[in-house]
Design a binder for these strands. Structure first.
Length: 323
DNA sequence: CAGACTACCCGCCAAG
DNA sequence: TTCTTGGCGGGTAGTC
């Protein structure tokens, strides 16, 4: 899943083991398993598969009927592993083979929470950057020393492999994936339908910093962020933002980091990139005008940041995602 | 793509 | 004493 390139995902397989984590599987069902074509959101050919189809217990006392076997995973465009039950047991060779076959065929692989243990067990995370639930990161590191584990992120993409942190971070990862497949306008529409924020904490698309345990946001800070997001086309030096928040520049920068996990300038840049992406996808404005309206003075600057943060060009993004 | 100019931002330290 | 705030220096990154 190269940065900025459009990814093709039509069939989706959720791969489960001997016990199912209801919430994590539910995330995949919400994102990929519902028909939302009435909202213009694409549908997927979605199935739950595992090594032994049939009634499979969840970790919450009820059971789920798994309808497909591993062949379904081997042929899907996206194979998603929603948490994994056996963190220390060796991975079932049949599951490892199905995952590797999907990978070799060019499928996208996604893990939520401890699902990373299955991908790692299949050897697909060797040498790759990856993440998992913070509680299990050390365990993953011990069992699979070749995995380059990123802590304090919501999700990580490395090539065609997308791993996400605990539980709800899977939603962020799925929305990111949808934006790579269908563009951010579709991902935003889906986020609205699911009533979740489209982008958490102003992180970068492929490397989102963990929003620190919600520090009770200084009222002033939240207002300034909202105001800035509505005036991205203006010049917004940090001094102006600090002034609106009634703080010194130094203190504003410090508080900004504890609240958002990033710096004012980087946050602004990401907001502006997202605005530019949306304008490119949903309008026919010239790249110059898009640059102006999203707060990049000129098209050159927009191109510069598109290349740096998205690995592509504004024109290519429009070509891939324009309705 | 290079180069000059500017803004950012983070460690450090002092003051409240 | 500990915690928060604010100013400064200067390496880094953005802008044109």
């Amino acid at each position: 899943m190269a940065k900025g390139q459009k990814v093709r995902v039509e069939s989706v397989a959720a791969l489960v083991g001997s016990r199912i984590a209801g919430f994590e599987l539910g995330i995949l069902c919400q994102v990929f398993g519902l028909d939302r074509s009435d909202d213009g959101i694409p549908s997927y050919d979605f199935a739950v598969c595992g090594p032994r189809p049939g009634l499979t217990p969840t970790t919450s006392g009820f059971a789920v009927e798994v309808t497909h076997d591993l062949a379904r995973a081997a042929e899907a465009d996206l194979v998603a592993v929603p948490a994994w039950p056996d963190l220390d047991a060796p991975l079932d060779p049949a599951i490892a083979a199905a995952l590797r076959e999907a990978y070799a065929r060019g499928a996208v692989l996604l893990s939520i929470c401890t699902g990373a243990f299955a991908l790692a067990g299949a050897g697909l995370l060797d040498g790759r950057r990856a993440t998992t639930h913070w509680q299990f990161a050390d365990r993953l590191a011990r069992r699979f020393p070749r995995v380059r584990i990123e802590r304090d992120v919501l999700y990580v993409t490395d090539g065609p492999v997308l791993t996400s942190a605990g539980a709800a971070a899977g939603i962020d990862a799925c929305l990111h994936l949808v934006s790579r497949v269908h563009g951010s306008a579709t991902a935003n529409a889906l986020a609205r339908r699911m009533v979740v924020p489209a982008h958490r904490a102003g992180g970068q698309a492929q490397y989102v910093e963990m929003p620190l345990p919600a520090v009770p946001t200084g009222e002033g800070m939240a207002e300034v962020l909202d105001w800035a997001a509505e005036h991205l086309d203006r010049d917004l030096p940090v001094a102006t933002l600090a002034d609106r928040a009634g703080m010194s520049v130094r203190n504003f920068a410090r508080r900004f980091r504890t609240v958002t996990g990033t710096t004012p300038h980087r946050w602004l840049l990401e907001q502006r990139l997202q605005r530019a992406e949306l304008l490119l996808e949903t309008s026919d404005l010239t790249v110059d005008v898009v640059a102006e309206r999203s707060g990049f003075g000129c098209a050159d600057t927009l191109r510069h940041h598109f290349a740096r943060r998205r690995g592509t060009t504004p024109h290519a993004h429009r070509h891939a995602f324009h309705a």
